[in-house]
Computed example of a mutant assay.
Amino acid sequence: MPTIYALKPKFQQILRPLTSWLYRLGISANGVTVFACTASAAYGAWMALLPGSRWPFLALPLFMLVRMALNAIDGMLAREFGQQSRLGAILNETGDVVADTCLFAPFALLAGVNSGIVALVVFLSILTEFIGVLGQVTGGGRRYDGPLGKSDRAFLFGALGLLIGAGAPALSFLNPVLVLAAVLLAWTCINRVRQALRHAPS
């Protein structure tokens, strides 16, 4: 199923000159990964501490784009400049889960939003990545199947943040959208299990 993840090669091509420059500066893949996770935690704290302010939500799409760029850059540094390591793999997977949690959870603090639905979305987001990694254990490869993978979630929450920051009443649309997101995340989990088993060696 097509997802925003399919655009990653073109995105990487745009970022390749910047990646080469960072390498010449001595920036490591693991350093970029840790920075992206730390920045996400700090941004999430900004959102959580000021749930009544529009600015953290209004700027969220831009931050999500920057985070996606950092995720692409750390991968290119690792693969193209010989920086792949077991520690890097652990940091990459853990950092993504921590970042998603920090950036999604503050939506539960908005007036009128069902915090239980937000918690479910966070849980299912973590589960999709857990199942994606398990694909490697079964021999089916790391799974990035949709319909609501990491890049798609970033786009969704960035768009929701933009609407809230622009003054749209969260109560009128956020809960139904989050319920739909939970359904799509459950579908993503099932799809990743199916594809991991399908591509696993007999």
Score class of each variant (00 low, 15 high):
residue 1 M to P: 15
residue 2 P to R: 09
residue 3 T to K: 04
residue 5 Y to E: 08
residue 6 A to N: 15
residue 7 L to K: 04
residue 10 K to L: 15
residue 11 F to I: 10
residue 12 Q to S: 15
residue 14 I to H: 13
residue 18 L to A: 13
residue 18 L to M: 12
residue 21 W to T: 09
residue 22 L to T: 08
residue 24 R to G: 11
residue 24 R to Q: 14
residue 26 G to L: 12
residue 26 G to M: 11
residue 27 I to C: 13
residue 29 A to G: 04
residue 33 T to R: 09
residue 35 F to W: 13
residue 35 F to N: 09
residue 37 C to W: 00
residue 37 C to D: 01
residue 39 A to M: 09
residue 42 A to M: 13
residue 42 A to P: 04
residue 47 M to P: 09
residue 51 P to T: 01
residue 54 R to A: 14
residue 55 W to D: 06
residue 60 L to F: 12
residue 67 R to L: 02
residue 67 R to A: 04
residue 67 R to V: 00
residue 68 M to T: 09
residue 69 A to P: 11
residue 69 A to Q: 12
residue 72 A to Y: 01
residue 74 D to R: 09
residue 75 G to V: 02
residue 77 L to V: 11
residue 77 L to N: 13
residue 77 L to G: 15
residue 79 R to V: 07
residue 79 R to M: 08
residue 82 G to R: 15
residue 85 S to V: 14
residue 87 L to C: 03
residue 87 L to W: 10
residue 88 G to N: 03
residue 91 L to M: 11
residue 92 N to I: 07
residue 93 E to K: 08
residue 95 G to W: 11
residue 96 D to T: 04
residue 97 V to L: 12
residue 100 D to L: 01
residue 101 T to I: 05
residue 101 T to Q: 02
residue 104 F to I: 15
residue 106 P to T: 01
residue 107 F to C: 05
residue 108 A to E: 09
residue 108 A to P: 10
residue 109 L to S: 06
residue 112 G to K: 04
residue 113 V to P: 10
residue 114 N to H: 09
residue 118 V to R: 01
residue 118 V to G: 06
residue 118 V to L: 05
residue 119 A to K: 00
residue 119 A to V: 07
residue 119 A to F: 05
residue 120 L to D: 00
residue 125 S to G: 15
residue 129 E to N: 12
residue 132 G to F: 00
residue 133 V to D: 00
residue 134 L to Q: 08
residue 135 G to I: 04
residue 136 Q to G: 11
residue 142 R to K: 14
residue 142 R to C: 02
residue 143 R to V: 06
residue 146 G to F: 00
residue 147 P to Y: 01
residue 147 P to T: 03
residue 148 L to S: 06
residue 149 G to K: 04
residue 149 G to H: 03
residue 150 K to F: 09
residue 151 S to F: 02
residue 151 S to P: 03
residue 153 R to Q: 13
residue 154 A to Y: 06
residue 154 A to P: 05
residue 156 L to R: 02
residue 160 L to E: 01
residue 161 G to S: 04
residue 162 L to I: 02
residue 162 L to W: 09
residue 162 L to Y: 11
residue 163 L to V: 06
residue 164 I to G: 02
residue 165 G to C: 05
residue 166 A to C: 14
residue 167 G to P: 07
residue 173 F to A: 05
residue 177 V to A: 12
residue 178 L to F: 13
residue 178 L to S: 06
residue 179 V to P: 14
residue 180 L to W: 05
residue 182 A to P: 08
residue 185 L to T: 05
residue 186 A to I: 09
residue 188 T to W: 05
residue 188 T to E: 03
residue 190 I to T: 07
residue 192 R to E: 02
residue 193 V to Y: 13
residue 196 A to I: 01
residue 197 L to Q: 11
residue 199 H to V: 00
residue 201 P to Q: 05
